[in-house]
Design a binder for these strands. Structure first.
Length: 390
RNA sequence: GGUUGGGUGACUGAGCGGUCAAAAGUAACGGUCUGUAAAACCGUCGGGCUACGCCCUACGAAGGUUCGAAUCCUUCCCCAACCA
């Protein structure tokens, strides 16, 4: 048989091939091909339905290729949902093992044993799914008992689905993983933000499933971010970090809208809210900022941050400390601004000058003058200061 | 694998042969105001220049058509929805 005849033979009785070109190429390459067929040992017997594909596999064997028969002993425990309108009964490991044995025996009624490689997919799927015991994957037992209705009942998932926006499998599975964590650590109580409610509740289900006493779930209100609108989160960039510098932290807190300040008091401090509300808003906010800075940086730093804020923003004076920059030689102010990092580029520098944002030694500069090296303070906007040195 | 719709500046998102460095909104920045780095209002918002103009780089990638392309064609890469 020539290549063309072989190809024709292979194609006979097929419905679809993707792609013919590639098939032809492989067949004519002269290589010994590895042809895979997977079957889940979900019943005792192979039947004629199987024989169609097994025959085709045999055809390849007769051409000298290797049949790789995959016995889906692991996937049989999952249950292939294809074309099913109800969840398949999941088989236990014993039945699967027994079925697998008869499968291989029966398969050799069609296949050439010498050219067949038999593999069980539990070999790799079991470690993949974290089933060390071999007694059945915890993941599967867990995932099986959680219905899509539960998972998709979540407002956020539902909304995304209805809007036709992407929702990945992993995201859907996420609550399951999180719930399983509770089983692993035998949690008695789990805390979480309000938005975590469903995830955390999942832990209870998972625990019950595993014969554990379900954890107590405690959810907490969400802190609104510094933008005053959305919840505080790293990805939204509206957060105050533990590691923020004292002055920054103080400043961010002072920038909160007044209304938001009270919820911060409530959620972050033990202060008496009623008393706070009688105080002057700015005083109250400074106190809040001070309390929080003190918690992360100490009392002393908190006082310094407050002093700095009052000095720079309330009295519009120069801060105690500022970065210094040595000016080597005379040059355009715009160049200098770029060089010492207060402007992103020349255009930006010129723009800032035009907009009246630049001060030299306290005097507003409205033109891109030539700067002669001297000691003075360069201020850009309200927040950026540079101590210029010769 | 098939069908359909897409990939545009920090983000969302218009534009679909010239008037496009690209609408609008958000964010950011500057100014005014203020007890605040809030709100409100005004302005700026690719890079550069010997600067009411000029140059360079940009609309997934690479080619092509055209006097002229984010816009049309080809190939490729990537994403999504739906189908199977």
């Amino acid at each position: 048989m020539n290549n063309e005849e072989i190809l024709k033979d292979i194609l006979r009785g097929t419905v679809d091939v993707v792609s013919r070109e590639e098939l032809a190429k492989k067949l004519s390459s002269g290589k010994k091909l590895r042809v895979k067929l997977g079957v889940d040992p979900s019943s005792r017997d192979l039947h004629l339905g199987h024989s169609v594909v097994l025959d085709k596999l045999r055809q390849f064997q007769d051409l000298g290729h290797t049949a790789v028969l995959i016995i889906g002993d692991f996937t049989a425990q999952v249950g292939d949902p294809s074309g099913r309108d109800a969840t398949r009964p999941v088989l236990d490991a014993e039945t699967v093992a027994a079925n697998a044995k008869t499968y291989t025996e029966q398969a050799f009624k069609v296949l050439d044993k010498a050219r067949t490689e038999i593999r069980f997919n539990s070999e790799w799927l079991r470690p993949f799914m974290g089933d060390q015991s071999g007694r059945g994957s915890d993941f599967i037992l867990t995932a099986k008992s959680v219905t899509m209705a539960t998972l998709l009942g979540r407002e956020d998932f539902k909304a995304r689905l209805e809007a036709g926006s992407p929702l990945s499998l992993l995201e859907i599975l996420y609550p399951v993983f999180q719930g399983y964590d509770s089983v692993a650590v035998k949690a008695d109580i789990e805390l979480g933000g309000q938005d975590q409610r469903l995830n955390v509740l999942m832990g209870r289900d998972m625990q019950k499933l595993n014969g554990q006493e379900p954890q107590v779930v405690i959810t907490l209100p969400l802190l609104v971010g510094t933008d005053g609108v959305k919840k505080m989160s790293k990805s939204l960039g509206n957060y105050v970090a533990f590691n923020d510098q004292p002055n920054d932290m103080f400043g961010k807190l002072m920038s909160l809208p007044d209304e938001l300040m009270y919820s911060y008091y409530e959620l972050l401090t033990t202060e008496d809210l009623a008393a706070v509300k009688t105080a002057h808003p700015m005083e109250a906010k400074k106190k809040l900022a001070g309390l929080i800075v003190a918690r992360y940086h100490g009392e002393e730093q908190a006082l310094a941050a407050r002093a700095n804020f009052e000095q720079v923003f309330s009295r519009k004076e120069l801060p105690e400390e500022m970065e210094s920059y040595r000016v080597e030689k005379a040059g355009k102010l715009s160049c200098l601004m770029v060089a010492c990092g207060v402007a992103k580029g020349m255009n930006d520098a010129r723009r800032l000058i035009e907009q009246g944002a630049v001060r030299l030694g306290g005097e507003k500069v409205s033109e891109d003058i030539v700067f002669e090296p001297k000691e003075c303070v360069l201020q850009v906007g309200r927040r950026q200061f540079r101590k210029l040195e010769k």
